[in-house]
Nucleic acid binder design. Structure first.
Lengths: 203, 203
DNA sequence: GTATTCTGAGACACCCACGTCTCATCTGCA
DNA sequence: TGCAGATGAGACGTGGGTGTCTCAGAATAC
């Protein structure tokens, strides 16, 4: 039953992330249920938005957990985080788009905790000499989350193949856009860090 | 008078970029005018949103023009674009947040043109050997625009100092997050291309 | 000084999305 | 087959944002 609710929430994200003013009819249709059932699952629109925010933050928190961002060297931790976060990139896109929307302390507190964990990761990496110190850890956190959100949008709109997502994100964020003739960033040309096996790419 | 309209539009962006469902009362108050005057300037909510999109795209197009992205080597062109686009980053943030909103062909066509120019810049840079070819030009375009939007949000919420914005954007996007002991990205330690002078870093 | 224009404040009606309800249908289980 | 639970379709009333209007006051020009 909880899975059912989550499936509806994810479908709702797919609609609301791009059209925040979408009607409940549209959301229900996207979830494959009727408006009546949507109202049975969630009391109202506010409750729906609230639970989307909660789900998204919980997923991101789980990604931080499974990536064990507090352990190991910072670069490897970030690569693990990329792999863990990309599947839920669309939820992050929703958060990035309207995180100001929440008056709920529950959501805001959870948000602060996760951002703080991300911030700590970059601070640690800077102290270790892994990350650049010319860029503030706050900006690195912000930019990383923005790129995750961008991944979510791009995948949703079919502009980016899901199997390329993790590689594209990790390489661009860590290594930047400039070509370096001497040495690659750290990831070999084989897509070891990103996804399982590349076959088709039309979502 | 056109300046008046633009000022209202920019104020509206400040509200709508974070709260897409904001009432017209709120937008009018943010612009320092009454709801009646807002209705005199723009027939309705749809027209307001439409003109915001138009203004944003025109500003971005102007940034592409002043940066002369079609000329010179690609890296320098991109750095010029950063400097030109950052002042209107919040408008880009609005576009990134709800570019699906527009059914207007006028807006969509303008959007496609600008994205195509950005795409062409990265393609050219890849052919010149400036930009990495492991990352698709489409993804580089997308990510660049996402970061510009992130800059806009971060500045608006006070998480990033405006004078650090261009430097942070250019350095992260071009050089990535990883520290390179041997050589800097290409911009000498003096921030010649982006901003005037870095001093503090606590936003 | 008047006259003109523009603006803000408020009132008003309209409309549509929302929330709730009922009822028929379908499914799962004994 | 019969029962219980869940779902979809539709109707209905309501509320709040929106669009329009009027009128008083301020600003500017003459």
């Amino acid at each position: 039953m909880a899975t059912d609710r989550d499936a509806v929430l994810e479908a709702a994200v797919g609609v609301l992330s791009r059209r925040p003013t979408a009607h409940l009819d549209e959301i229900a249709r996207a979830a494959g249920i009727s408006r009546a059932t949507l109202h049975r699952l969630f009391p109202g629109r506010d409750a729906l938005i609230h639970e989307i925010g909660l789900l998204s933050l919980q997923r991101f928190a789980t990604a931080l957990d499974t990536a064990a961002v507090e352990q190991g060297d910072a670069q490897a931790a970030l690569r693990r985080l990329v792999d863990a976060a990309v599947p839920d990139a669309m939820l992050c896109a929703f958060l990035a788009g309207e995180n100001q929307l929440y008056e709920s302390n529950e959501v805001n507190d959870l948000w602060d905790v996760q951002i703080e964990r991300l911030h700590a990761l970059f601070l640690r990496g800077q102290r270790e000499g892994t990350f650049r110190i010319e860029l503030s850890a706050a900006w690195l956190s912000e930019a990383f989350f923005d790129l995750v959100a961008g991944i979510g949008w791009a995948i949703q709109d079919g502009r980016l193949a899901p199997r390329d997502a993790a590689f594209s994100l990790a390489e661009l964020f860590l290594g930047g856009a400039l070509r370096r003739p001497d040495a690659p960033v750290g990831a070999p040309p084989t897509h070891s860090t990103s996804d399982r096996k590349p076959e088709t790419d039309t979502p």
